[in-house]
Design a protein around this nucleic acid. Sequence first.
RNA 1: GCGCCUGUAGCUCAGUUGGAUAGAGCAACGGACUUCUAAUCCGUAGGUCAGAGGUUCGAAUCCUCUCAGGCGUGCCA
Length: 554
Amino acid sequence: MKKRLQHHLRKCLETCRTDGILISEHLPEALVEVPNHSEHGDFASNIAMLLAKSEKKPPRQIADLLVSRLRNDTELFEKVEVAGPGFINFFLNKDVWRKTLEVICSSGDEYGTCTAGQGKRVQVEFVSANPTGPLHIGHGRGAATGDAIASILSAAGFEVVREYYINDAGNQMDTLGRSVYLRYRELLGNSVDFPPNCYQGDYVKDIARDLIAKYGSRYLETPEEEAVSLLAKIGGDIILKGIQQDLRDFGVVHDTWFSEQSLFDSGKVDESIAYLKDKGFLYENEGALWFRTTDFGDDKDRVVVRGNGVTTYFASDIAYHREKYEQGFDLVIDVWGADHHGYVPRLKGVVQSLGRSPDDLKIVLVQLVALLRNGVPVAMSTRSGEFVTLKEVVDEVGRDAARFFFLMRRSDSQLDFDLELAKSQSSDNPVYYVQYAHARICSIFDNAREKGFTLPDVGGTPLSKLETPEEISLIKALAAFPDVVEASALHFEPHRIPFYLQDLAGLFHSFYNKNRVIGDDPELSAARLLLLKCTAQTLKNGLILLGVSAPERM
RNA sequence: GCGCCUGUAGCUCAGUUGGAUAGAGCAACGGACUUCUAAUCCGUAGGUCAGAGGUUCGAAUCCUCUCAGGCGUGCCA
């Protein structure tokens, strides 16, 4: 709706210019927005103020000129007026609003989608937790966020691939192998010194126990270093399987799982280093090979190959991101924990060294999650292995509540996750508030069917019967959904959807409390049933973007 | 020290590329169930947008500085 108006305004400006009414060489972009107060119209534009300088006329005078023309379109506008310092306020014809119900009905599950993405190929890489331990609650936020961003982009017309990057190369795998090996020995009756830099969590013991059950003590026979590397592989696979299961249970499905090790096996890491060397971005210093990331605004240059000849994690990431673009992605999105933010400039540098715009890489930083129980923080420490896993949280509060809570906040602000609140089946809990609206509508439908109504369809339903303030507000909110999805996609901000849904659910509940749907007037009942059909559809479409279910009964 | 993020109602947070009188939920207080789900609704109250300057028709939003909190600042990943 907003777009339609913007287009309309733009056309008006252009005709004004060809008619010589406007003299500005360059017409500013026609900005239309929803004002804070309904007295200021359904939409408002500040275009006259923006034109004031180049037109050398007071804003109100320009606004008057424009309004005198816009006003003629009585089909679209109920009224158009100039207000304040020069705002143009648009009041749309009620029938224009009501028509959006027809659009929603005919679009169905597609309502809210748009073509803003123009089919551009996007890869969203998220979670990508090291296969050295189970997913914890922080990963859960990353999972919910990445998945929602992917869904929202897809709805906005992007072609999306979800990817998980498996860090199965590097020191941490060796540490895992050592941790498993030591626990294995310990469980077989040997006394061991378990070093503090090994993984302390109980899951390591579980893996060791499983190995004993399966293979007995055979790894005591093999030389230690060999056993460690074998157990690193086995342990990593077991943990990865667990991660995959946890993600499935959370409703997150990655299209591709990309192994860091494969970059070495295929020679891509060496290739990338050769590429950078060829382009002159690398230099040697103190025996190591450095990437001049300072050329791209980084604080300092970064090591790619260490003095001992071993590549760094950064080297893998160079090869990995090079690979992404070679696969033909127009846009690459990395969802990271915010503690990696220091890594952003160097990776932006990588992208530019590949001859791409830094905007071709979007890094979404997801802040930490503080887990609370009845308002009191739950102690967590990765080092000691005391942490709350994603599985535990999902088991306790359910998938829907967990997902919704993770997405309720902007990703770059810290999140307090209160277990009791997420579990509570009350008005405190925004998940239920939204889901309840959907279930309530379904219940009204059941009731309508019992009373012999058939659910109305587009056409034939007298929409003009819808005229109470609650009805009109609800329709306006429904009409805004596509704009919300598009903005959410283009800003990579999934939290806009939960906010919108709470707002929409609120408008429905208000409507419900003041207006009876099934009543004496069959035409009015039909019109209201159609309105609710559209409301349920929109609620459902929004919830699906978040990976939250839309129950028909609660 | 330097860098990134954050600072908005008692609490948790929104605030649409600078717009008109800064919003919502929770908590508090007062109301609404014989009627389609009260997991709901209606109302009241609650603010130095951390602070100080600056930019302009106009700032919670942009710039500078200060303060507070979080994170980062490895030839770890």
